[in-house]
Design a binder for these strands. Structure first.
Lengths: 231, 231
DNA sequence: TTTACAAATAGTCAATTTGACTATATTTTT
DNA sequence: AAAAATATAGTCAAATTGACTATTTGTAAA
């Protein structure tokens, strides 16, 4: 499309970094890759890379994430731009960070491209990363904490059918504190956001819980009428 | 600092655009500049321009806004990056948008640099702008609407000492609907966020209202204790 | 110098929502 | 058959909301 630049040429002052949160076993993880080449070879960092002239920034984020980790088809949301002069050691690089929240169990990791490895790290056991990646991660986590209280986020990272307790575990993991069970149930159910499946949990060694599903249509109907999700 | 680039050289694939909301006379305005040169000469657009190698992205936003409009010393917040492939006509340009909310009466406009003029436009009388500037503005307004319900925003755009009615007018202008006066007062005062000045409004042709001020310290104390501002 | 107006501030009250609980139900393992 | 584990239901006082009405305090017009 553009002027004299080749399509696959990269914009060298601009990069992408992805903050991918994964939830499983009641814990929050973060997806990191090990650099297989370049100035940070051998170090763990946020998956990221360079934007090409022929792709949108959003598309670059999705492409990079997929090629580095194998994770694709997830809803990547833009977080913010980090643009301090000295954030990158060898030249001026401004980065656009992206964020997503997924069910870690739904994805097989396939390290590729410039990544020699890809791995989920517990959020509280993240290594020191190059550049300002630890700052970006921290910003992403704060954003997540804020967001979870104001939007019905996180349903995409549970199984299609889930129990109320599973949502509560997720919320507790993100907010880092416990919530009263009966009150949490009541609040969530009163929003009329969840549809009860006529089905129960299986293979548990105690009373089986009802399964629910999150209905996007209902959510959009409600929000259009002025409904505001608040934890 | 950097490699082979001169300090004042610009990063040519990356620009800044500022969405500056102004409030006065109970109305929301937006600050635009008229391009005095370049491919959009003569058209009104968001104040913006190019980032230099020796300045942070945040600093570039502040510099550009000041040089184009004369408006300085305001709190500019990053909005988001707009990065579609064809958003700019002659080459690939990704833009970082910034946002602020100010009291329009507090600033004298001094068009400069590449701007031949600078003017406040009523938010509902914004002309068609080049590139995706109308989209950026719309995004900024949505952001503002969301933000005003979750953060005590906008106190910086009222005079230091203000009446409860002035805040209400501001909120109504942003939210585009009326609010019940006694209830609004009650809710706001019960947050213990406002400090009553022992002073009254002057030069009004009716009962003078008490003046209040917003105390950032109190706000930060409250938020640290888990207080959440909700309209 | 009343009287009308305009806006600030105060108060009411039923309905809803919260927060902190207790009680009961259902299923599985001992 | 009892114990254990967890789901689900229910209670209740306190706080908050939404929709109002009432009163106060000041200017401006008659």
């Amino acid at each position: 499309m553009m002027s004299s630049k080749h399509s696959s040429e990269i914009i060298d002052a601009l990069s992408i970094d992805c903050v991918i949160f994964g939830f499983r076993h009641g814990e929050l993880d973060i997806l990191l890759i090990k650099h297989g080449e370049g100035i940070s070879k051998g170090r763990w960092a946020l998956p990221g890379g360079w934007i090409q002239y022929n792709e949108s920034v959003d598309a670059a984020a999705a492409r990079l994430l997929k090629s580095l980790t194998g994770v694709s088809n997830i809803y990547l949301e833009q977080l913010r731009c980090f643009g301090d002069v000295n954030r990158y050691p060898t030249k001026r690089v401004i980065t656009i960070s992206y964020y997503a929240l997924v069910n870690a169990d739904h994805y097989d990791l396939h390290p590729g491209f410039t990544a020699s490895d890809a791995k989920w790290f517990n959020l509280h056991e993240v290594p020191s990363m190059p550049y300002d990646h630890n700052d970006i991660l921290e910003f992403g986590f704060k954003y997540l904490k804020h967001k979870v209280r104001h939007e019905p986020i996180g349903f995409n990272l549970l199984p299609k059918k889930f129990t109320l307790h599973q949502i509560q575990e997720l919320y507790e993991a993100i907010l880092e504190h416990e919530l009263d069970k009966p009150n949490f149930r009541r609040k969530l159910l009163n929003m009329n956001l969840l549809v009860p499946c006529q089905e129960k949990q299986k293979d548990v060694s105690h009373r089986a819980a009802n399964l629910y599903r999150f209905d996007k249509k209902i959510y959009h109907q409600l929000t259009e009428k002025g409904f505001a999700f608040e934890l």
